[in-house]
Design a protein around this nucleic acid. Structure first.
Lengths: 124, 124
DNA sequence: CTAAGGTATAGAGTGAACTCGAAGGTCAAG
DNA sequence: CTTGACCTTCGAGTTCACTCTATACCTTAG
């Protein structure tokens, strides 16, 4: 697949895709005779995973570490598992934090809605 | 409270505190006769909330919008409630995304652990 | 009174993650 | 064989969120 197709299928710009490749986040990129990049089908998933991790607050460097561990699974399984567990712990912590914030926002929201109703009553 | 105390109690540097103030994230800052900033007790909570939201992926601009809505609660309650609901929706989505990722990471981790054991057996 | 250390402002510098544009090679249609 | 839509690299520019520096004023202990 050419870069434009990957761009279209992931929503990530060609500039950013080349940037990710430079940062070591996209390794399975071959070249055609004309020097055009040729991505395997798998690249779509890979890019999506990078995006997902990024949206969750991981830096590109951290994402690189995760992918690196996954790639080296034949060499370094135990270590990879530890890294994965660490990342999962971070994810768990974030979930807990978000849930706490959710409660907080819900309370704020309810209070605002109550105030809105009171105002409404006064207007009538 | 002076800036150094707020710095110590929040773990946020004085530089960053002044920066947040400039960005409109810290409004209840009065001045002493000597022009030193004087923060109310409440500022600790405010700073912590800013940090929490930031860690969850909100930009300072988005955080400003949330705080702005909360501050204007006497004027614009209904709109504030809507904004809060929107933010909560974002939080909910993030939680869902994280939970999906958690499953994915758990699977990867288990697979790596299994591979590690197999390697171990071969070594014995 | 002095020295150390806290505070002020303004503005420059940093690093991450893009984002864009120029200059040029490739390719398929007409 | 040209036109237009691709693709390449390289390097400059941008935005965000700090982070630091310079210069100068304020405060407190000795």
């Amino acid at each position: 697949m050419k870069i434009s197709e990957l761009e279209q299928r992931t929503g990530v710009s060609r500039h950013t895709l080349r940037y990710y490749e430079k940062q070591g986040l996209l390794l399975e990129v071959s070249r055609r005779g004309n020097n055009y990049r040729d991505y395997p089908e798998q690249a779509v998933k890979r890019v999506n995973m990078v995006r997902q991790l990024k949206d969750l607050g991981f830096s590109l460097r951290e994402i690189f570490d995760v992918l690196d561990a996954l790639r080296k699974d034949t060499m370094d399984c135990a270590q990879g598992a530890v890294l994965m567990a660490q990342k999962r712990a971070v994810v768990d912590a974030k979930i807990a934090e978000l849930e706490a914030l959710r409660v907080l926002l819900t309370e704020e929201q309810q209070q605002l809605e109550r105030s809105a109703k009171e105002q409404d009553l006064q207007h009538q």
